[in-house]
């Protein structure tokens, strides 16, 4: 099964490797910056181009992977759908609900398969947490707290630091938690949120979000792009018969180099190696669907819901009022 990658910076490089491991073949790489497309394509013996729309129309392409900055997802999702290609779209599915709906409608009309990369559903630690909850280990859940983030990412052309493009830590990073929360605890009833947006510093965002789920459960989600370095994920779930906690800083592997390429001492980077990466698992899940074997863990509507939750959180932070989900 042949894949055309659109977007060859961070996520492009990342997904090329995992899709290949899952049995896909990278045949074409597109990026607005030619060098980037050429560099990635050369590693996989693929073609490189800056004309990304043309990639969607190639006869030898079965799947288009949309790995661009968020606001450009929909343009390529629609082009791929219209060319009859199946689609892997990195999260967030779109920057606006209109974009999401346009993408879904195009895929439905064309009858192609659309997968949104909410990879946290494939992380082994998160699946273990879900399994423990499902097994009743904490009893009836009443409260959940999640934490995710570290340094503000840079990205091509500094796009993460452009609020209108990325939507900050809420739209880009803790959208992972929003999707996972809904996956495990059902739909939210309303949200209240605070964030730093561009209040103090463009390179710093910090989001503090409270969801009231339809079940009554309260969920507190913290997202940070305010740390000078590192990346940390924490989860706490409290119920009437117990609680559970996860903290990525308690990792089995950590390294600290005396000197790094930048000349600066390296920070401690905790690692948690697994045989099969969650990113590879999501490509396997997508492939099984393409092969006619079962449904994937993430549906296109899940991708839309996560964007809805992020947009509602951003709206609440802007207005100072809770936002209800109808």
């Amino acid at each position: 099964m042949n894949v055309a990658l659109i977007g060859c910076s961070g996520m492009g490089v990342h997904h090329a490797g995992h899709a290949t491991k899952a049995g896909f073949k990278i045949v074409a790489c597109g990026d607005a910056i030619k060098e980037r497309a050429v560099e990635l394509a050369s590693q996989y013996g693929a073609d490189a181009t800056t004309d990304c729309l043309s990639l969607c129309k190639r006869d030898d392409v079965d799947v288009v992977a949309v790995l661009t900055p968020t606001p450009f997802h929909t343009e390529y999702v629609v082009a791929a759908a219209e060319a009859g290609k199946n689609i892997f779209c990195e999260k967030p599915f779109g920057r606006t609900l209109e974009q999401c709906n346009t993408g879904i409608a195009a895929a439905e009309k064309a009858g192609v398969k659309l997968f949104v990369g909410h990879v946290v559903r494939y992380f082994q630690e998160f699946e273990t947490i879900k399994a423990q909850i499902d097994a009743g280990k904490v009893g009836k859940v009443g409260f959940v707290r999640t934490y995710r983030g570290g340094i503000c990412p840079v990205g091509a052309g500094n796009w993460f630091r452009d609020w209108d493009m990325s939507g900050g830590v809420t739209m880009d990073t803790i959208i992972h938690d929003f999707d996972w929360i809904r996956y495990v605890f059902g739909d939210p009833a309303q949200v209240f949120s605070q964030n730093l947006r561009e209040q103090f510093d463009k390179a710093i965002d910090y989001a503090m979000v409270t969801f009231r789920m339809k079940s009554g459960i309260i969920v507190n989600t913290i997202g940070t792009w305010a740390h000078p370095g590192g990346f940390r994920v924490k989860v706490e779930v409290c119920g009437d018969n117990g609680m559970l906690q996860f903290d990525s800083s308690e990792a089995p592997l950590s390294v600290m180099m005396r000197e790094t390429a930048s000349g600066m001492p390296g920070m401690i980077v905790p690692g948690s190696p697994v045989g099969v990466s969650p990113y590879e698992l999501e490509w396997h899940d997508f492939k099984n669907w393409l092969d006619g074997k079962g449904r994937p863990r993430v549906t296109p509507q899940d991708g839309v819901w996560a964007v809805r939750m992020a947009l509602a959180a951003l709206e609440s932070a802007d207005t100072g009022k809770p936002v209800a989900f109808n």
Partner: peptide, 19 residues
């Protein structure tokens, strides 16, 4: 959630949630 003077934003969990 609190807002403080100077635009400081705060999240706080007050609970008896420990098992």
């Amino acid at each position: 959630h609190f807002e403080m003077e100077g635009g400081i934003k705060v999240s706080h969990i007050a609970s008896w949630n420990r098992s």
